[in-house]
Design a protein around this nucleic acid. Structure first.
Length: 350
DNA sequence: AAGGGCTTCAACCGCGGGCAA
DNA sequence: ATTGCCCGCGGTTGAAGCCCT
């Protein structure tokens, strides 16, 4: 339906607020409350429209507003929430005490969006960028991770180190995901389910992975986190609750299906789920030694599983329980003398 | 020092939902 | 069912400050 703008009255002031105007507005609201915003300017003696007053109050003058730079935890929370809620700035702001939607929106557009893009993550989908330029961008990702420390002031040193570690981990996860996708594309049958390692959630929370490997019959919206045996700390639990509280989750009722939460549909606040028929895939795998699979176009020997393939297999099977990165444990990819190292993975990808 | 480009963020704009008459 | 008012939201703008050459 809409309506004509409230600010179309001739003579009303626009633009930046003066300290005097701020004082008048604050004193009036503290004394009387804001009541009807439309009537407030006249009652308070301000030559502004009600909308301008409301905006000034909610975004700047409100006493509970937390000013100053976003800390590391707030930053990660915003990214998490944005991955679920999309550009629902008010919903995101509701979960960050003292922060306004406007402030979060600005911070997203000026800082976080760029940061994610630098890390090779699409800020809209929160997925790894899937264009073919990704592989050529890997050196940049490592460069970003290496430069973060030098950008930080001494007081930010710990945060910088953490970010640096996060970025390095992200680069590794992305590298591995590329490998899995490559192998899946060349060796899997059309019925093989897709798998998302979701690098964002690996980076930004130690126990968040379980979100993407949800269990059967526990998808009761906000109770889902309590229903899963997460074993996470309070912070992670909180994030998980955030993650589900505004999402509509399609229930999965069949005991023969296992749920993989792959991504979010930000526009509709619906978490997209894919279901794998576990009754038909008791030991599902993207890489298989089964002779009927078409491996002709790959360099993989169909009769022997090399370390890379074994590792991918292990990743996939462990990703289906509550420790999706279990395959990483005990792995020393940086050591060229081990069965499997980064060199092997890079060679496979190239 | 100057000025052009870039970044930041407060403020504005217009739309749509909720609600009452 | 329709209309109009109010509010809140998300997208956009533009002034101010910063940075680089």
């Amino acid at each position: 339906m809409g309506r004509s703008p409230c600010c179309d009255e001739i003579g009303l002031k626009k633009g930046p607020w003066t300290p005097e105007e701020d004082k008048v507005l604050v004193e009036y609201i503290q004394k009387n409350g804001h009541g009807s915003w439309r009537r407030l300017p006249k009652l308070a003696g301000l030559n502004r429209c009600g909308k301008s007053c409301r905006l000034r109050w909610t975004n700047y003058l409100r006493p509970d507003i937390k000013r100053g730079r976003f800390d590391d935890e707030e930053e990660r929370l915003i990214i998490h929430l944005h991955s679920i809620l999309g550009n629902k700035w008010s919903a995101i702001a509701a979960r960050l005490p003292g922060r306004t939607d406007n402030e979060i929106k600005n911070y997203w557009n000026t800082h976080l969006r760029k940061k994610l893009m630098q890390m090779g993550i699409d800020p809209v989908t929160h997925q790894k960028r899937t264009d073919l330029n990704f592989l050529s961008g890997i050196p940049n990702i490592f460069a970003v991770s290496g430069n973060l420390g030098s950008l930080a002031s001494s007081s930010d040193h710990l945060n910088a180190l953490r970010l640096q570690a996060d970025a390095a981990t992200l680069a590794r996860v992305q590298l591995l995901q590329s490998l899995i996708q490559l192998i899946a594309a060349t060796s899997s049958s059309s019925t093989t389910p897709a798998l998302s390692l979701d690098p964002m959630n690996h980076v930004f929370g130690s126990n968040d992975q379980c979100l993407f490997n949800g269990q059967l019959g526990v998808l009761n919206n906000q109770d889902v986190a309590n229903s899963l045996n997460l074993g996470g700390d309070h912070h992670d639990q909180k994030l998980i609750n955030y993650k589900y509280s505004d999402a509509i989750i399609n229930p999965c009722s069949s005991a023969d299906h296992e749920l993989f939460m792959e991504s979010t549909n930000n526009a509709n606040q619906v978490i997209n789920c894919s279901y794998m028929d576990t009754s038909a895939h008791s030991t599902p795998s993207l890489v298989t030694t089964s002779p009927e699979n078409n491996l002709e176009n790959t360099t993989i020997d169909p009769t022997v599983q090399d370390p890379v393939s074994c590792f991918v297999d292990e990743c996939i099977s462990s990703s289906r329980n509550l420790n999706p990165f279990g395959a990483w444990e005990g792995l020393d990819l940086d050591n060229p003398n081990t069965d499997l190292c980064w060199k092997d993975i890079l060679e496979r990808i190239s």
